[in-house]
């Protein structure tokens, strides 16, 4: 079944159709908690991307070795291992950024999205598909984080990527953690709205 998906399809699926933040609504904690700046989003995005890709590939490669009865514990172990690896690496090489992310890197281990992809995709498909799927999901997560981070950074501290672009801080509210809920909620609604408008237009065209 190797040629069932093209790598591009798998990528696009993760980024757009099944975006883990806006569409699947999984792994929301960091999207609310630390999406105050774009760089936080990128940083955590990289961590998730790393864990997702490596876990997907690992599980896919070992899928014949894993006994079905201990499937879930094996997933957990795999994810925990890769989370530990990225956690230690970030702590060592990017101490500043790591400090800002608090325990959010560590709690990647409890992200539903990763386990879900392993269970639904990686344990059935071959390594390269799993790689692309993992990459797509990871990128989807990263894109979501970056978009939220962009809005919040721009409105909250008047900056993008840490560079002051507005010269003033429009609404401090947006860097406050509680604003994360509002931004995510409003964005989800925005995506729903776009989708509805798009669907309506499609229907119109058909008629």
């Amino acid at each position: 079944m190797a040629n069932e998906y093209s790598s591009f399809q798998l990528l696009a699926n993760g980024i757009l159709k099944e975006n883990p933040i806006f569409k699947l609504a999984l792994s929301m904690c960091p999207a609310v908690g630390i999406s105050t700046t774009v760089s936080n989003g990128v940083m955590l995005g990289i961590a998730v991307l790393f864990v997702q890709v490596f876990s997907s590939v690992t599980i896919s490669a070992l899928k014949n070795f894993i006994h079905p009865r201990i499937r879930i514990p094996t997933y957990t172990l795999t994810i925990a291992t890769w989370v530990t690896v990225i956690d230690l690496s970030l702590a060592a090489f990017f101490p500043g950024a790591y400090a800002k992310m608090g325990i959010f890197v560590k709690i990647i281990v409890a992200f539903a999205i990763i386990t879900m992809r392993l269970e639904m995709f990686a344990c059935k498909e071959d390594v390269s598909d799993s790689f692309w799927d993992g990459l797509g999901m990871g990128l989807g997560f990263m894109v979501g984080m970056v978009v939220i981070g962009f809005v919040r950074e721009l409105l909250g501290s008047g900056a993008v990527f840490g560079y002051d672009v507005l010269g003033f801080k429009p609404l401090l509210f947006f860097i406050l953690p509680s604003a994360g809920f509002f931004v995510v909620g409003l964005m989800m609604a925005f995506f729903n709205w776009i989708e509805a408008v798009y669907a309506a237009r499609k229907r119109e065209v058909k008629q």
Partner: peptide, 22 residues
């Protein structure tokens, strides 16, 4: 057997990373 093996591999990976990054 397989669980033990997985744990060992995982432990090795993490241990190596730890030594390397510490």
């Amino acid at each position: 057997f397989r669980l033990t093996l997985s744990c060992l591999i995982a432990g090795t990976v993490m241990g190596t990373t730890f030594v390397f990054t510490n």
